[in-house]
């Protein structure tokens, strides 16, 4: 069983000096510059050994000018988890290091976050659109994306 968020915070900060983690409920908020250090520590060191990244996604907060990345980590070795990490990025220029060199499974998920939200992942081996077609402009899942007119005939206007 994983320890509580407070215990995780003190354990990680103890092993990695210079890294600050803020627990929000059960979620650990990590600074963007510390992401790779923390993830590498969580992946290779006991008692964590988080070798499985289940979910990488983003949440858009236009009113607070930020975009959050959410990571759900589990351990197939120890069969524990989830550990939820949140990284708060500046919405005007969302850039963060990619975790694909650590966990191959993040490759397609980070491409999807880039495609739909516009977050740039530095160090990703192949960052291009995955669900939208090449040449598509805009990032559809952002809250301020305006859907273009759908001109199929409908009996009643929406």
């Amino acid at each position: 069983m994983l320890p509580s968020a407070e215990q995780l915070k003190s354990s990680i900060e103890h092993s990695l000096p210079g890294v600050a983690i803020t627990p929000e409920g059960a979620v650990l908020v990590v600074e963007p510059k510390d992401l790779i250090t923390v993830c590498r520590h969580l992946k290779h060191h006991e008692p964590f050994f988080m070798d499985y990244v289940a979910n990488v996604t983003a949440v858009d907060y236009p009113n607070e000018q930020r975009m959050d990345l959410v990571y759900h980590l589990y351990s197939m070795h120890h069969k524990h988890g989830p550990m939820t990490l949140r990284v708060k990025l500046n919405r005007a220029r969302p850039v963060v290091a990619s975790v694909t060199p650590l966990w191959r499974g993040a490759e397609f998920q980070e491409r999807e976050v880039y495609d739909l939200f516009g977050v740039q992942f530095e160090g990703h081996p192949d960052l291009r659109r995955i669900l939208m077609w090449e040449g598509f402009e805009g990032h559809p899942m952002r809250k301020d994306y305006v859907v273009e007119d759908q001109d199929a005939p409908l009996p009643h206007p929406r």
């Binding site: 070798d51 499985y52 197939m76 069969k79 966990w103 191959r104 499974g105 490759e107």
Partner: peptide, 20 residues
């Protein structure tokens, strides 16, 4: 190792010998 690192799950993972 590739299966675990690539977040593969389900029967595909278990066919590679990982008990998850």
């Amino acid at each position: 190792e590739l299966a675990i690192s690539a977040s593969v799950t389900g029967p595909m993972l278990r066919a590679s010998g990982v008990n998850y």
